[in-house]
């Protein structure tokens, strides 16, 4: 945490503030997703602010994960999936065929629902992406990346003596933080998190949430969550999805205290979902 504070001051990264409106990092316009014949997402318009945490909430199957996976084109890996509409990252259209997904994903990292460390050593898990993207060449560079990423993910102190042990040997919460460390090793601009705590116990969840809050100083974070409490705790912006439609979006506080839409009201008060 000390090092985080340091980066903030020395690098002068603009600190996100709940009250000040943020610059828009991702702008999605009329995004629709089809799985074969079935449409899963209907004309979603959503802007995602820089250096803030945006939560996507809604009942299961509402399309929130589908939308998240559009942001780094992970839907490309699903056979028969088609995405329509526009998504601009810093003004660059990411849904165009001309865009290189490999480079896109280096800029937009992702953390999954279940921790999925590779069956490699902890260090190799971290250096995997920098190595394939050619971000470092010497061992010293890689060591530095490992240390910095693990520190930033708050895992360094726990694993610094066993960097050569397999990442799969860690506890669930540690594995998830390893996955976060792995994602930030390439210094992405955006981190997508797909229910990152749903497979974890409450203590591990608390640690991850803390981490998310710290990471937003440097990264734009979009998180899909099933838990409204979590959305309320970690995010500044919240978007509510229902049946593939973006029902309502806005400041988290506004969504949870004064929802404009009846469906949002029903959902957050627990009437369905």
């Amino acid at each position: 945490m000390a090092n985080l504070a340091e980066t903030q001051t020395t690098e002068g990264v603009p600190v996100a503030n709940d009250d000040i409106p943020q610059a828009i990092r991702i702008a999605a316009e009329r995004v629709s997703v089809f799985y074969g014949e079935k449409q899963a997402l209907f004309d979603v318009d959503l802007d995602i602010a820089s250096h803030s945490v945006t939560s996507l909430i809604g009942p299961s199957g509402c399309g929130k994960s589908t939308f998240l996976r559009c942001l780094n084109r992970m839907n490309d890996t699903i056979e028969g999936c088609r995405v329509a509409g526009n998504i601009k990252l810093d003004g660059v259209e990411i849904l165009s065929d001309a865009l290189d997904v490999v480079q896109l994903r280096a800029r937009v990292g992702m953390v999954f629902q279940k921790p999925n460390p590779f069956p490699k050593s902890i260090a190799d898990n971290i250096t995997y992406a920098p190595r394939i993207h050619g971000l470092a060449t010497t061992k010293a560079d890689f060591d530095a990346i490992v240390e910095r990423s693990l520190r930033r993910a708050g895992l360094w102190d726990e694993v610094k003596d066993r960097l050569d042990e397999p990442g799969t040997g860690l506890s669930g919460g540690q594995q998830q933080r390893l996955c976060i460390a792995r994602a930030i090793a390439v210094q992405p601009e955006v981190i997508l998190m797909d229910e990152p705590c749903s497979a974890l116990d409450p203590i591990a969840t608390a640690r991850i949430e803390e981490l998310i809050d710290e990471l937003r100083q440097e990264y734009t974070i979009v998180i899909v969550t099933h838990s409204m409490q979590q959305a309320a705790r970690v995010s500044q912006k919240t978007a509510f999805f229902h049946l593939g439609i973006l029902v309502e979006e806005g400041e988290t506080e506004q969504i949870f205290t004064a929802p404009r839409d009846e469906r949002t009201q029903d959902y957050i008060t627990g009437r369905f979902g």
């Binding site: 780094n72 992970m74 890996t77 997904v101 490999v102 480079q103 896109l104 994903r105 280096a106 990292g109 992702m110 999954f112 279940k114 999925n116 460390p117 590779f118 069956p119 995997y128 992406a129 394939i132 993207h133 996955c179 792995r182 994602a183 390439v186 997508l192």
Partner: peptide, 15 residues
């Protein structure tokens, strides 16, 4: 091999 492994790697920008 679980799909999660592939997703994890793709999401890091691996070909």
């Amino acid at each position: 091999v679980p799909q999660a492994m592939r997703d994890g790697s793709f999401a890091l920008g691996a070909t």
